[in-house]
Structures are given as C-alpha cells and as structure tokens.
Design a protein around this nucleic acid. Structure first.
Length: 479
RNA sequence: CGGGACAUGGCUCAGCUUGGUAGAGCGCUUCGCUUGGGACGAAGAGGUCGCAGGUUCAAAUCCUGCUGUCCCGACCA
C-alpha cells in the first residue's frame, strides 16, 4: 500500500486518498473510474441533500436519453464548437451502420430542448423547471479520479421562462443553492462569480460559477449555472405565446454539479493520514469499535456497543459498529481514519467498568479517554456539529490566507508560483491578459466575483490604469 | 495531441545490462497463539512475465509493432 508523504505532489495525494479510502478504483475503460461503495455513499449523501434543495425550489426530476442525435448538437453553433471535440459517438447498432449517428450526451441541452419545443406552447406552460440525475461523457485528454473522468455522474437542471429577468433570477438562485450545499454541507467555502467570455459554457450568454480553493493552492470550479438566453430556444424553435398573444422564444437556464464534488472534498479536507469527511456527508458519522478479547466474555462489551449504536441512531446519527473479530482494532483504527470517518468510539471492558468510552476525533486526530457514558449521545451530536463547523472554518481561514490582492504581473507571479491561491485584482477587460495567464502562468481568470472587495481606485494589474470601467477578478491555477 | 516513465501472482516491486527450470515483501487460505494503535509463528495456494510478430537450440530478458496505465504540458465540470 502506498501512502502520500508530505513531499508527495497533489496528484498522488488525490489518487492515494481515493484508492486507500476505497472511494474509487481505476477501471479497464480508458478515462473511466469505478466508484466504490464508500465513494458512492458520499455521492448519495450529496444527492439526498441537493435533490431536496432542487425540489424545494420548485423543480421536478425527469430523465432524457443517453444518446443524442448528432444533428441536434449541431443546431447551436457555439455549442457544437465547444463540445464536438470531446464527444463519443455511436455509429453502429444491431450490427448495422446507423443512418444517423448518436452522440453519447456530454450534456443535454439539445435533446431537452427538442422536447421542450413540443411541451411549451403558451405562457401558461411556463416556467418549466426540470432536473435530471444522469451520467454524461466527455472524452478527456487527461483524466484524474473524481476531478476529471471521461464519464461522470451529475445533475443537470434545465428551465424555461417567459422573461429574461425571471431566467436570470433562476440562474442566481441555483448558484446560491450550490453555494449553500458546498459551504454548509461539504464545508468547502466558495466564491460565486461570473465567468469571462472565454470560460463560459458553450452556447450560454453568461455563466456563473462557484470557485473553491483546494489545499494544494489550486482553484476548482465546483458548479456552474448558465443563462442560456434564447440561444437554444432559437435553435430548437422553443416558442410560446405570451399573455399579449405575441410569439416569443423562451428564456432558458441550465445548471449542474457533478461527482467532481467528491474530488473537492478530497482535495479540500485531507491530512497525512488521508481523507477527512465533513459529518454531514459522511456515509456514517461514528464508528464504534469494541475491544474484543478471545478468552474472555465479550458479551458485555458487544451488548453495550449495540446499545450505544441504537442510542445514537435515535438522534439520527449514522453509526457503524465494527465487531469483526478476525481483524485487530489497530487495523480498524487505521482503516476508518483513512476513510475519513469523523468520530470513533472505542468501547472496552476496562472502559465499561468505569462507565466510560474513548472518543477519537478524525479532523484533528485527537483522542479523549475516560468520556462518561452518561449523556454521550448528545455529546456526540454536538461534537459532530463542532467538527462540521471547524472544517468549514479551517477551510475559510486557509482560503483567506491564500487570497492576495495584486496590482501588477510581478505580484501575481509571487502569488501563483510561491504558495498558490487566489489573486484578486482589477482588470480593464483586455483579453490579452487571459493569454498571458494561460501561456506564462498556466492560470486563468476564475471568475468576476459577485462579492467585491477592492476599491475603484485599485489599478488594473495589466495596464496599470484606474477606471470605473475596470472589473474585479480572481485569478488562480485551476484543476 | 506533444514530452517522460511504466507494464512480472490480488498489491508493491526485484530479475532484463551479459538470453538457460519465475523471485521477494505485503495480502490471501488453514492451524496455533494473540488482541487498549496497522500482532506473531508454522504450513499452503496463487504467475502461459500487457498483446502480436521477429531473432535464437533456447526469450520475462534482445529487436519491431501495437495496446493500456501513471506523471508533466495543451483542452475541459
């Protein structure tokens, strides 16, 4: 078993944790991974939370086909240009060449619009707000577990509205839902911002993003929400008759987050031992390990462990009792630490004599012996909240420390190439800067943040000019 | 798609330079002993050396081609 050491680079941290924590494994299919039960359970936690958020904001789930007629993709010029290079195409089926090739969906705007155009006729049909949980495929040059695989799981929301205003509201609402999910459940702080033209979704008027900072100093685009304007509506003739009896194209949005979020957790919360899971999305939050002795009566220890488990479960705490006898407790300790389980309870005969247990906290690797059994369930519940908060605060602190304001390319260089992180700056909008970032720094403008921190008299880092036309930007190297 | 590395038992790798009966550690199985931080001992199972050609009496080893994986770039959620 290989384990990352401190000098290991971020690439091996990602794969070591994903493999050792049994989140995923490499598959025989190029660029595709297998999500193992522990990893999939995290995805299910995320799904459960986000699905409720999506429904609470008035959306319904539906499902559209995996295969998209190739001609659909070509109907929207920017869209096809953006996605064609990374599409896998089905050309044969049933032993015959197909009349029309099918693209394995890289995203579903086109096929969904085909259906929308049938379903939408009147303003009374609007807004139409759908979501689907699905897999998509984008043939990537280079893949990384969770952060970029050719096939990945995601949800994609697609909505139609009668006005641009309403669509814009939807776009902002959903990006804020994502921010809520990331910060309050995954404990990953994010900046909401707008993408530059070169970074926005192929076919969108405008793309909003949540950008997170990983512990290695690289930014991660963790979710996006797009204002599609009427681009797809025009391509697919998705029209409606307004209250004023005028025919108009619908205004649309789409938005998504993917299994990349698991990558965000891995790269956002880890230490030398391995993964650290935020309690709210941990498949189980507490593992109980009874100390079992062969030539002694273990029934009391086991009984008490089971009792503890059901006590905790009554407070809606997810608990696993590991009473395997063939494996030493030391081995178990290590296993659950690598897997990032927030709390470990150790129950042994000596503890029980004193009505005590031992509590281990994964996030700070601390051990507390002699914790009284009395009121333990409430104590654990509080501790889980504390861990959740502490992880968010730690990540926030880290991000703030790694965010610096820069007013020149030289200053930018030291931020990007020394410790890494976000550089905040003013920008006059000259796209030449983006070229320089890409070529000289392998970095990019991650977003134009919604929450601005710089005053208007901060000079543009590219031209040095001070102008009210200048826009505030965040620059980083990114995954 | 460019650059680098690699492909030998379930895993990590040695062996290849200089061709000659396939190795180690970990894991696995059984038994024993143990259990408050990855136990120990003994016995055992498990590999047509990525694939296809070629050279040779003989190829894991030399040659050619292919495929795949990882890492670094460009592209991307």
């Amino acid at each position: 078993m290989t384990t990352s050491t401190k000098e290991a680079n971020s690439e091996s941290i990602l794969s070591d944790i994903a493999i050792n924590a049994e989140l995923a494994d490499y598959s025989p299919v190029k660029g595709c991974m297998v999500i193992r039960p522990h990893g999939y359970a995290i995805w299910e936690s995320i799904q459960k939370i986000l699905d409720k958020m999506i429904k609470d904001t008035g959306h319904e789930n539906a499902y559209f086909p995996l295969l998209v007629p190739e001609s659909f993709l070509q109907k929207e010029a920017e869209h096809v240009e953006g996605f064609a290079p990374e599409c896998a195409v089905v050309t044969q089926a049933g032993g015959k060449e197909l009349n029309e090739k099918y693209v394995i969906r890289p995203t579903s705007e086109t096929i969904i619009n085909h259906m929308f155009s049938k379903w939408v006729g009147s303003y009374r049909d609007l807004p139409l707000k759908l979501n689907q949980w699905a897999n998509v495929m984008r043939w990537e040059m280079r893949t990384r577990l969770f952060l970029r695989t050719s096939e990945f799981l995601w949800q994609e929301g697609h909505t139609c509205h009668s006005t641009h205003e309403e669509a814009k509201k939807e776009v902002m609402q959903m990006i804020n839902v994502y921010k809520d999910l990331l910060e309050n459940y995954l404990a990953v702080p994010v900046h909401i911002g707008e993408k530059t033209d070169s970074e926005k979704f192929a076919g969108a008027l405008d793309t909003f993003t949540i950008e997170a900072l990983m512990r290695d100093g690289k930014a991660l685009q963790a979710g996006t929400s797009h204002d599609l304007g009427q681009n797809f509506a025009k391509a697919f003739d998705t029209t409606f008759t307004s209250q004023e009896n005028k025919l108009d194209y619908v205004w649309q949005t789409s938005w998504g987050v993917s299994t990349r979020l698991i990558g965000a957790i891995i790269m956002g919360h880890n230490d030398e031992v391995g993964l650290i899971l935020p309690p709210k999305i941990a498949p189980f939050q507490v593992v109980i390990i009874p100390i079992l002795k062969k030539n002694m009566d273990n029934s009391l220890v086991l009984e008490k462990s089971k009792e503890l488990k059901s006590q905790l479960e009554q407070l809606d705490i997810r608990v696993k009792l590991d009473d395997r006898t063939q494996i030493s407790q030391g081995h178990k300790f290590n296993e659950y630490e690598q897997k990032g389980i927030p709390i470990r309870l150790v129950v042994g005969a000596r503890d029980l004599e004193n009505n005590q247990v031992e509590i281990h906290r994964r996030d700070i690797q601390s051990k507390e012996k002699g914790v009284p059994l009395e009121n333990l369930d409430n104590r654990i519940k509080d501790l889980l909240d504390e861990i959740q908060n502490s992880l968010l605060n730690r990540a926030l602190e880290f991000r703030n420390k790694r965010t610096k304001t820069v007013t020149s390319i030289e200053e930018l260089d030291s931020v990007l190439n020394c410790e890494g992180g976000f550089a905040r700056a003013m920008w006059n909008g000259d796209t030449e800067l983006e070229k320089i970032l890409k070529e000289k720094f392998s970095a990019s403008i991650r977003c134009l943040p919604l929450e601005k921190e710089l005053s208007e008299d901060t000079p543009c880092l590219f031209s040095g000019t001070i102008s009210s036309e200048n826009k505030e930007i965040m620059i980083a190297k990114a995954y």
